[in-house]
Design a protein around this nucleic acid. Structure first.
Lengths: 209, 209
DNA sequence: TAGATTGTTAATCGATTAACAATC
DNA sequence: TAGATTGTTAATCGATTAACAATC
């Protein structure tokens, strides 16, 4: 592990490497060269080697990379060997979908509770996950060692409730509201509308993919 | 409109400009300089002017930019003055949430139908949107002039069904499955798991935001 | 050993930032 | 007119790609 300052571009490629390597492993591929991986992922082989060597030398000259080993190492870098307790603010469409989404459940990310201010939702159970009133947010976070706060409610409360989450002990925020949150902890945005607008732009201004 | 080849980085900032300008307009702000906007958005004023001048000269020397005008122009660039008929493949958590999501409904993006192969879902109505069997996909797209296909089903069918959508006439794909789709039309990915993994990385490797 | 492929340094390319003349 | 701020050219910075010695 050398780990200087890693650029945003590199960080964003890491999950993609991970995903493709998982697939390769499932297909029974045991080793792969940067060239082959570059082909599959539509990247440059040099870039792949540069990316990996930001962290460590995972390969072997003349041989390539062992898929299983690379998965293990990338998993460590992405800190997927840990478990994370999460809460969701907003028990609407998105909050509900994320609660039921099993893409990360099995990899150590657990939704422990939802919070809302709508009396018709407070008290509900989404499968085995309870919906509490948002007034209980801070107490719950502190008591239950929640590390990730997911924000899926109305934009207007995003800044205020984010600050409350942070004060209560949350270490990262996953934001689904179409707003930019000011924060002392890392924020990762999923701006659905922005994404659709980009698609709209490309649809109208580009022919190819 | 000059419109040479616009870089991906610029394109991705456009919706964010749009969003912030809408907010400013709602707050009654009538004009803004690149410097003020840079402050608000945490960007560099030069970058903002460069970005806008990729398309046209929207400002006025010594004065700045008229917020309303800028909104109009960015709307045109993003092609938000048009309307788009969309379908969703996958009537599960995500497909359902997107059907009910009203962040884009009011801006001309209409979900017309969902498709699934689960017999317990086919025939359902999600509010006023019907769920059809996926066998009807191509016929429906062709007959109803669908331009955007949203993919929110299992990864394993993503490539095959995308190709079918494109053949049937879809002009862009919004993909929510954790897989990279090969496509002749623009694809915009919302890789939820990738996004969460990036957050996991930052949570463990960076202190600040 | 010869061949392959890495790790790493150097070259290139593109994006961001600075500077400033144009002009409202 | 003087002041402000754009549009645009030039400088800088960082990311991607190429090249190649190291080495398995």
């Amino acid at each position: 592990m050398k780990q200087g300052k890693i650029s945003e571009a590199v960080i964003r490629r890491l999950p993609r490497y991970y995903r493709h390597l998982i697939t390769l492993n499932e297909q029974g591929v045991e080793r792969i060269s940067s060239g082959e991986l570059a082909n599959i992922m539509n990247l440059n082989a040099s870039q792949i080697r540069q990316d990996f060597n930001n962290f460590d030398s995972f390969g072997q000259q003349g041989y390539g990379y062992q898929v299983k080993n690379l998965i293990k190492e990338l998993g460590k870098i992405l800190a997927l060997n840990k478990t994370y307790k999460m809460i969701i603010i907003g028990a609407g469409n998105i909050g509900r979908a994320l609660t039921f989404y099993d893409g990360f459940r099995n990899s150590g990310f657990e939704v422990c509770a939802l919070f809302d201010n709508d009396p018709s939702l407070v008290g509900c159970m989404y499968r085995d996950v309870p919906v509490y009133h948002v007034d209980l947010l801070e107490e719950y976070i502190a008591k239950n060692n929640i590390t990730i706060g997911i924000y899926a409610a109305h934009s207007s409360f995003a800044q205020d409730l984010s600050e409350k989450m942070i004060k209560a002990g949350v270490k990262a925020i996953w934001n689904f509201a179409p707003v930019d949150i000011n924060s002392s902890v890392p924020v990762e945005n999923v701006h659905l509308v922005d994404s659709l607008y980009v698609l709209s732009y490309k649809l109208n201004n580009q022919s190819g993919a």
